[in-house]
């Protein structure tokens, strides 16, 4: 009898606990927590990797910091959760993280079937190949029969299969969980070729004992627009992440930098005034303070600063702006106006 009653109570309790969860208001959750939870990679130089002191740095990390600056006014109020490529979408879907900023390619399938939204593009990339110099290979078309190291659960895996099949070439894929493992596999000679997004190849090459022993082949075999991702169904939060990135691009275009942002608050340029919050109610419309964009630029910098600091020509990665230059400089970084 007592057992039956207990079972009944347990059943009822379970029914209450599993009542359908409504889409959580991410903004309120982040504000009351006082901290943004951001999913990043397990270590990719230039994009998201911890430094000697354990501080996360990189262009993907800065996207998280910018969102934290806009929402909480503090770019350091971020908790970083390192995720493998395989774990990342589940972590976001289940609400473990507020935003995923982990060199994630925006594709049709991911946008439409995972219950997620891509909030923009912080890096335009393309897939390439890294090979050892002593193989004497100059072009990807000479890779017939090669063993290729790849990271599991990436668009890279699919592009690679498409490319080799289309070219009528043979290959054997050696699939690992983390990018570190793929570098190890490549370094120890388990594979001839390491394939990934080109920006990552430059970053991963710096992890080799002798970075000059390997070269990145000229071919780019795919389009890889990388950007932050949020859950579907919380449009307010989606807008915040999207416009934080746009604000950084607009700031670069308007010449607002982390150094001059305070002076710019006295600017007469109406576009600058709307950006830094001295005119209009742009912040309020997002549910944020008026100086949201000014805090982003002051604490993290504009898009150009973010790029140069993490992956630009002064860093070991030594990547030129290329596609990621502003549209007015021959690139394709373009943000809708703040008005």
């Amino acid at each position: 009898m007592i057992k039956t009653k207990a079972a009944l109570a347990a059943g009822l309790a379970a029914a209450v606990l599993t009542a359908p969860a409504l889409a959580a208001e991410t903004l309120d959750a982040v504000k009351s927590r006082g901290e943004l939870v951001c999913g990043v990679s397990t270590g990719l130089p230039g994009f998201s990797s911890p430094d000697d002191a354990g501080n996360w740095t990189g262009i993907d990390v800065d996207v998280c910091r910018a969102v934290a600056a806009a929402v909480l006014g503090d770019a350091d109020a971020v908790k970083f959760v390192p995720l493998t490529a395989k774990e990342r979408f589940t972590a976001l879907q289940s609400g473990e993280i507020d935003v995923l900023s982990r060199n994630t390619t925006w594709t049709h399938t991911r946008d439409t079937s995972l219950g997620l939204n891509f909030a923009g593009v912080n890096y335009y990339d393309g897939q390439g190949f890294l090979v050892k110099k002593d193989l004497g290979v100059a072009s990807a078309t000479e890779l017939d029969g090669a063993s290729v190291c790849i990271q599991a659960g990436t668009t890279t895996e699919l592009n690679l299969a498409d490319y080799f099949r289309f070219k009528g070439m043979d290959y054997s894929p050696v699939v690992f969980d983390t990018s570190d493992q793929t570098v190890q596999g490549f370094a120890s000679g388990r594979c001839d070729v390491l394939t990934s997004d080109q920006s990552q190849l430059y970053g991963l090459r710096t992890k080799l004992d002798n970075p000059d022993s390997a070269v990145v082949l000229p071919e780019v075999i795919s389009k890889e627009p990388l950007g932050p991702v949020v859950r579907q169904g919380d449009d307010e939060w989606f807008n915040i992440v999207k416009w934080t990135l746009f604000a950084q691009v607009n700031a670069e275009e308007l010449g607002v930098t982390s150094e001059n942002v305070e002076d710019m608050k006295t600017s007469d340029n109406p576009a600058v005034k709307r950006l830094v919050g001295t005119d209009g109610d742009m912040g309020e419309k997002l549910g944020l303070s008026a100086d949201w964009a000014a805090m982003v630029v002051a604490q993290v910098g504009n898009y150009g600063e973010m790029f140069e600091r993490n992956v630009g020509e002064t860093t070991p990665l030594n990547i030129s702006r290329g596609l990621n230059a502003l549209w007015s400089d021959g690139g394709i970084q373009y943000a809708p106006p703040i008005r």
């Binding site: 395989k86 979408f89 589940t90 879907q93 399938t109 599991a152 659960g153 969980d177």
Partner: peptide
């Protein structure tokens, strides 16, 4: 449970 799960997202 690795690649297929990730490409389809149907965990």
């Amino acid at each position: 449970m690795g690649t297929t799960l990730n490409q389809t997202g149907q965990a």
